[in-house]
Amino acid sequence: MLELKGTTVSYGAVTAVDDVDLTCATGEVVALLGANGAGKSSVVKAVNGLVRPIAGSVVWQGRSIESWAPEKIARAGIVTVPEGREIFGNLTVLENLRLGAYRLGRRAARSDLDRVLGYYPVLAARTSQSARTLSGGEQQMLVFGRALMARPELLLLDEPSLGLAPKIVAEVYATLRQVCRDLNLTALVVEQDIATVLSVASHAHVMASGRIRVSGTADEIRSDKSLRALYLGATS
Rank of each mutant, 00 (worst) to 15 (best):
D158S: 11
L164W: 03
I194C: 03
E159C: 03
L156S: 01
I168L: 13
L157H: 11
A195K: 04
T186S: 15
T186L: 04
Q178V: 14
V197F: 05
A150H: 04
R213F: 01
L185I: 05
V172W: 00
A165I: 06
L185T: 14
F144P: 09
S161I: 05
E191H: 04
P152W: 03
Y173F: 15
A208C: 05
V179R: 02
I194D: 09
P160V: 12
A174P: 03
V169Q: 09
R213N: 07
V206T: 00
L148A: 10
E159I: 07
R177S: 12
A174F: 05
V206P: 06
V200Y: 02
M141V: 13
T196M: 05
C180I: 11
N184I: 01
Y173L: 15
V190F: 04
R181T: 15
A150D: 08
A150W: 12
A208Y: 03
R211Y: 00
A147Q: 09
V179H: 13
L142T: 14
R146V: 15
P160W: 12
V172I: 15
P160F: 12
L183Q: 14
F144A: 02
C180S: 09
H205I: 08
Q178T: 15
A201V: 09
V143D: 07
A187S: 08
A204P: 02
A174D: 15
E153V: 14
L142S: 11
V214C: 05
D182M: 08
L142M: 10
D158N: 01
H205V: 09
M207G: 12
G145Y: 05
D182S: 12
M141F: 10
D193P: 10
A150M: 05
R146W: 12
E171Y: 14
Q178L: 13
M207C: 11
L188I: 13
L142Y: 08
G210H: 06
V179Y: 08
L155N: 07
A165C: 06
S209N: 15
Q192S: 07
L183T: 05
T186M: 03
M207N: 07
H205F: 06
L198E: 00
V169W: 05
S202F: 10
D158V: 12
V172P: 03
L188R: 01
T196G: 00
L142C: 07
Q192T: 09
L176N: 09
A147F: 08
L183C: 12
L162I: 03
Q178R: 14
R177A: 15
V179E: 09
R151C: 07
T196P: 11
L183F: 15
P166T: 12
A187K: 04
L162K: 01
S161P: 13
M149Y: 03
A195P: 12
V214I: 15
H203I: 00
L188Q: 06
T175L: 10
L164S: 05
L148V: 08
C180P: 14
M141G: 09
R151T: 13
V172E: 11
E159G: 09
A208T: 10
R146M: 07
R213Y: 05
A195C: 02
T196Y: 00
L154R: 03
T196L: 03
S161W: 06
